[in-house]
Computed example of a mutant assay.
Amino acid sequence: MLAALADEFEAQIGRTELRQLMHRVGSRFAAARPLPPCDSTASLADALNALWRDSDWGFVELADERDYLSIVHYCAPLPAFGESALAWTPAFLEGAYQQWLAALGAQGLAIRQASEFGDDAGIEFRLARAA
């Protein structure tokens, strides 16, 4: 059913617009589920994983890198929309992470998808200075 829905979306709406739509949906999802205050990367990971566990939407690993925060989300059910939808469905996660991190004070920083959905069911996003 989700693959048929995604096929119809793609037939009616371009992929760029679908990414924008999914980003807005993710942002709305996150705004309705605010995170508690987080004082470290570990506490942020714990808060995010509690939320994803309750939603049955996989789990996340965070890593502080030199120039960015790496956010690797595993086991999101994005393939349920079909292989071609993996071009735009990750924007849901991008929008959710952008909303949560902005609410926690990451002003002037942006979340960007840094990898495709991998064989390990993971997809990386990076929080870095906005371009």
Rank of each mutant, 00 (worst) to 15 (best):
D120T: 00
L35V: 02
T41L: 05
R15P: 13
E61M: 03
A76S: 14
W52T: 03
L93H: 08
Q12R: 14
A121D: 04
L86T: 00
S115D: 02
E65D: 09
L93K: 08
A50V: 08
A114T: 03
I123L: 11
L2C: 12
V60M: 01
T41Q: 10
V60N: 06
D7R: 12
W52R: 11
S115E: 00
G82Y: 01
A80R: 13
A47T: 00
D7L: 09
D67G: 02
W100N: 06
A42I: 03
L21F: 15
G82M: 02
P79N: 04
L18I: 04
F117R: 11
A80G: 11
A63F: 08
L78S: 12
R129P: 08
D54F: 08
A4P: 05
E65A: 07
I13W: 08
A6E: 00
C38N: 01
Q99M: 02
S27A: 12
I71W: 05
Q12Y: 12
S115Y: 01
P37N: 04
A45K: 11
E94R: 08
L86S: 06
V25C: 09
L21E: 14
A31Q: 14
D67C: 00
G118V: 05
Y74K: 10
A50T: 10
Q107H: 13
L48I: 01
D56K: 04
A76C: 13
S84F: 08
S40L: 02
W57N: 13
L101S: 00
L5W: 11
Y97T: 01
I111R: 05
A131R: 12
L18K: 05
D7M: 10
C38V: 03
A30P: 03
M22K: 12
H73S: 15
G26C: 09
G14Y: 05
G95M: 02
G58M: 05
L2P: 10
W52D: 05
A76K: 10
M1K: 10
D120K: 05
A121W: 07
A45N: 05
S27I: 07
G14A: 04
A91K: 10
D67W: 02
M22H: 12
S115V: 00
F81Y: 12
G26N: 04
A103C: 10
P77L: 09
Y74Q: 08
G118E: 03
T16E: 15
L93F: 07
E116M: 14
V60A: 01
P79F: 07
L51H: 02
F81V: 13
D120I: 03
A114W: 03
Q98I: 03
L35Y: 05
A3T: 15
E124I: 10
F117V: 09
D54I: 06
F59D: 10
A85M: 04
T16P: 02
A103R: 09
V72I: 08
L21T: 13
L104G: 01
A128R: 13
Q98F: 00
